[in-house]
Simulated assay, not measured.
Amino acid sequence: MGAVKRGVAGLSRKEKAQATRRRILDSALAAFTERGYSDTTVEAVARDAGVAVQTVYFTFRTKGDLLQATYEHVVLGPDALHPHQTEWWRTVERTDDVAVAVRALVEGTVELLERAAPLVWAVLGDSTARAAYEHNERLRRDGNDHLVRVLAEKHPLRPGLAPSAARDILLVLTGPQLYSQLTRELHWSRSAVADWMTAAVLRELFAVDAL
């Protein structure tokens, strides 16, 4: 006899709490993306998630904390993995070929951006969400600092390019703003964006032509 899927009644207390948390985060993501941060209320998120307002506040304390948790929710993805725990990050670190490393970096980043860029795009101009945006950009800068060092060990940066400038270029070329503009406004496909980003990173950081 095949395995029988457990219903909600068969879940443990921890599993129920995790399911409720995910439901709230999914509702918050939809609300922030569609309405923006300022125009989203905790009451609306609770209603869309089918929970009491008190449950949202008990789980996340404040609307700002809910936004940060939503950022982390989309960045970590369905497997709840930090970027440095993913297979694409390991490929970047392990391969000796800078072109292979950049392609892996871009493919992994584009997959992440597909989830996260709409949220960033929605809250980018909202001054009340600025603290969360800047916090997450600092995390992204730290990650890109590390990635530039790893890549530069495989192939020297192009002459005259300082590591800090290489990091900044990488931040822009693989960032949510550019991804959103190319996909949302200019209707590029995900694969077209990945190809262009790979070529641009190789050219601008290493003066290498993509294959």
Rank of each mutant, 00 (worst) to 15 (best):
V42P: 07
V42N: 07
V42F: 02
E43R: 14
A44M: 12
A44I: 10
A44G: 07
A44N: 10
A46S: 07
A46L: 07
A46D: 04
A46E: 04
A46V: 06
A46T: 05
R47L: 13
R47F: 11
D48C: 04
D48F: 06
A49Y: 01
G50M: 03
G50E: 04
G50A: 03
G50Q: 03
V51G: 01
V51Q: 00
A52L: 10
A52I: 07
A52E: 13
A52T: 12
V53S: 07
V53E: 11
Q54D: 14
Q54E: 14
T55Y: 01
T55N: 06
T55A: 11
T55R: 08
T55L: 02
T55Q: 10
V56F: 00
V56W: 00
V56P: 05
V56H: 01
V56M: 04
V56S: 03
V56K: 03
V56Y: 00
V56C: 06
Y57F: 15
Y57K: 09
F58L: 08
F58E: 09
T59Y: 11
T59C: 07
F60W: 04
F60R: 00
F60N: 00
R61D: 12
R61V: 15
T62I: 08
T62K: 05
T62Y: 06
T62V: 06
K63H: 10
K63S: 06
K63W: 08
K63A: 07
K63R: 13
K63M: 08
G64I: 03
G64F: 09
G64D: 14
G64S: 12
G64V: 03
D65M: 13
D65A: 15
L66P: 02
L66E: 03
L66W: 02
L67K: 02
L67S: 02
L67H: 00
L67F: 00
L67G: 02
Q68N: 14
Q68D: 15
A69W: 01
A69L: 07
T70K: 06
T70P: 11
Y71P: 01
Y71S: 04
Y71D: 08
E72V: 13
E72C: 11
H73Q: 12
H73N: 10
H73Y: 15
V74G: 02
V74E: 10
